[in-house]
Structure formats: C-alpha cells, structure tokens
C-alpha cells in the first residue's frame, strides 16, 4: 500500500470505509460524506464499537477511541481514517 500514490491510497481508504459501513447500514440511506452516524444511521454506542472493530480488521489499523467523539459524519471518518492509515502504514 505504501508504494501507491497518495490519491490511490486515499481512494482505497474511502472505498473500504464505505464498504464496511454498508454492512452496518440498517436504515438504507445512501452513504455520503454528510451522512450522520447518529441521526441518519441510528448508530448507538454498541454499534459504533462493532463497526470500528470491523473497520480496524478491514484496514489493519487501530482506531483510537479518542477520535470517535469528534466524528459525526461519514466524511469526517474518512478523513480521520486516512490519517491513521498514513501513520500506521507509512
């Protein structure tokens, strides 16, 4: 992954986030950057934990719990995840 240009890696991360999130999408809303976890996807604390664990598995990263309170939308999660992938996989 580190050999790929950053744009490509970035696309990969976005696609992975959306792919994992889709399996947790019970409300059936179309996933966009502005989609909100609580209001649009009805995520509760338990589902957030399960989703994050699945995302960690998919991308082989650790998502610190500290980042979660600041993430309200899918777009914010993509940005945060991209940063973690950059840090952890160089």
């Amino acid at each position: 992954m580190s050999a790929e240009p950053s744009d490509g890696a970035s696309q990969d991360v976005r696609a992975a986030v959306l792919e994992v999130l889709q399996t947790f999408n019970k409300t059936g809303v179309t996933l966009q950057d502005g989609t909100r976890f609580t209001e649009d996807l009805n995520f509760d604390s338990l589902l957030v934990m399960e989703f994050i664990a699945a995302l960690e598995d998919r991308l082989d990263i650790s998502v610190p719990l500290n980042v979660l309170p600041d993430i309200e939308t899918v777009g914010q999660l993509v940005v945060a995840t991209e940063q973690i992938v950059r840090e952890e996989h160089g």
């Binding site: 934990m49 664990a53 082989d60 990263i61 650790s62 998502v63 610190p64 719990l65 500290n66 952890e88």
Partner: peptide, 19 residues
C-alpha cells in the same frame, strides 16, 4: 490514546503494539 484489542487475543495485541 485509547486502543482496544480483541478480547483475550494476544496476537491482536501483538499486532497493535507492533504498529
């Protein structure tokens, strides 16, 4: 920074410590 590892999974802990 708070990182969770899989319950009773030392290999998962190892992976996260390695990173």
């Amino acid at each position: 920074q708070i990182i969770r590892f899989k319950h009773n999974d030392a290999a998962d802990l190892d992976k996260r410590l390695a990173r």
